[in-house]
Design a protein around this nucleic acid. Sequence first.
DNA 1: TGCAAACAAATTGCACACAATTAATTAAGT
DNA 2: ACTTAATTAATTGTGTGCAATTTGTTTGCA
Lengths: 152, 152
Amino acid sequence: MTADPQPAALEVPRIDDLLCFSIYSAGLAFNQLYRPLLEEIGLTYPQFLVMVALWDRDGRTVKELGEALYLDSSTLTPLLKRLEAVGLLSRSRNPKDERQVLLRVTDKGNALRPKAAAVACAIVDTVGISAEAAKTLRSGLDGIRNKIHRQD
Amino acid sequence: MTADPQPAALEVPRIDDLLCFSIYSAGLAFNQLYRPLLEEIGLTYPQFLVMVALWDRDGRTVKELGEALYLDSSTLTPLLKRLEAVGLLSRSRNPKDERQVLLRVTDKGNALRPKAAAVACAIVDTVGISAEAAKTLRSGLDGIRNKIHRQD
DNA sequence: TGCAAACAAATTGCACACAATTAATTAAGT
DNA sequence: ACTTAATTAATTGTGTGCAATTTGTTTGCA
C-alpha cells in the first residue's frame, strides 16, 4: 500500500490490450463486411451512413449532417457530390441563407431505402449479436465518443 | 404469439441505433484525440499502431504485421516506407526467403518508445474509463471482429 | 450605412484503406 | 529438371478523413 519508490518505467501496452485498437480493427471489419453488400446497391460504407442519416431527416444542411456523423465539410462535400452525381440526392443553396447547402433525397434515393434496409439486416444476422449486447456496446462506445468530443 | 400476417416493411434503423456507427464514430474520435499528441512525436495514428506492434515483436514480416493489424500490403507498404524514410525502422528482404520483407525497429525507433507510452497514458486519462470497463468493451469488440473475419 | 467578425462550404494537400493487378520468388508435382 | 501453382510485396486507382486555407454570405456593431 506504499507508493512505488521506483515507479515502473512507462511502457507501451501490447496492441491487443489497447481499447483504441479494438475499436479501430472492429471498424475495419465492419467496413469490409459492408463493402461487397453495399457495392451491389452502388454505395460505399460512408455513403451508406450519409443516406441513413438523410432518410431519417431529410432537408438537412451540410453542417447539420456533419454534426450527426461527426464529419466536416472537407470530408462531406466530395462524398455528397458523388451521391448527387449518381442521382441519389440534390444539393442546393438555402434561399434564406445562401451560405448553407440543403440536402434532399431524390425519388431514386428513396427507392434505394428498402435495399439498404436489407443490407443492414444481413449485417445484423452475420454479426449475430443480441439486441441487448449491441445496446450495451453502443452505450459504452457512445460514452467514450462523447467524452472525447466534449474535451475538444 | 402468431406470426405477422403482414410483416412490417423492412426499415432502415436510425443512424444512432446502428452499432456499426457507434464503432465508426468512436474510431474517428480516437483518431482525433490521438492526432495532436502523436503529431508532437511525428507519428500518425496508424503509424503509432504499427510501431506498437513492432515494439512488442520486432523482426516481423509485412505479412505477419498485417495479420496482427488486419491490414494488407497495399496499406502497409507506403506507410512502412514513410516510417523507414524518417529512420524509425528498416525494411530488408529476408535472405532465407526473398519474397518476405523483414521489419526492424531502429535505435531511433526504440528511442521513441517512452514518448509513445506517455501518449498512450494521456489517452487513457482523457478517456477516463476503468480498466474493467475497457476490458469488457474490448472483448465485445474483438468478438465481433473475429466473427466477421471468420466468415471471410 | 459601412465594415470587421463570424459563419458555411468548398478547396488543397497528405495519409490511410482496399480491390485488383503485377512482379518476383519459392514450392510442388510430374 | 521443368513447368505450374502458390506465396509475398509492391503498384495502381478510387474514396474517404482531416488540417489549413479560401470563397462567399450574413451578422453585429460603431
